[in-house]
Amino acid sequence: MDSDKIFIGETIGTAVLILLGGGVCAAVTLKSSKARGAGWLAITFGWGFAVLTAVYTTAALSGAHLNPAVTLGIAIKDDSWGDVPVYLAGQLLGAMIGAALVWIAYYGQFRAHLTDPEIVGDPADKPAEGPHAEGDGHAGPVLGIFSTGPEIRNVWQNLATEIIGTLVLVLAVLTQGLNESGKGLGPVGGLITALVVVAVGLSLGGPTGYAINPARDLGPRIVHALLPLPNKGGSDWSYAWIPVAGPLIGAAAAAGIYNIAFA
Rank of each mutant, 00 (worst) to 15 (best):
Q176S: 14
A245S: 01
G250Y: 05
P228S: 06
G201M: 08
K232S: 11
V102L: 04
L191R: 01
A95H: 03
P207T: 03
G219F: 13
Q157E: 15
G184D: 10
I104M: 15
G140T: 12
Y258K: 01
A15S: 15
V168W: 07
L204I: 03
W40A: 13
I260M: 10
I8H: 05
A133R: 04
G94R: 03
T44L: 08
P141N: 10
L185S: 12
S32L: 11
D136Q: 07
E134R: 14
G250I: 02
V70D: 04
V244K: 00
P187I: 02
H113L: 03
T44K: 10
A245I: 14
I12R: 13
R153V: 12
T11F: 10
D78C: 00
G46P: 07
D122F: 01
A254M: 08
F45T: 14
N259V: 08
P117L: 00
S235T: 09
N259T: 06
I192E: 11
S32D: 15
G23W: 11
V86I: 15
A240Y: 07
G206D: 00
G39M: 14
P141A: 06
E129F: 09
T175G: 12
G63S: 06
N158L: 06
A172Y: 03
D217E: 08
A263R: 12
A160M: 15
A255T: 03
P85S: 10
F262Y: 08
L169R: 10
F49E: 05
A245E: 00
Y87T: 08
V155D: 13
A253W: 05
R111P: 00
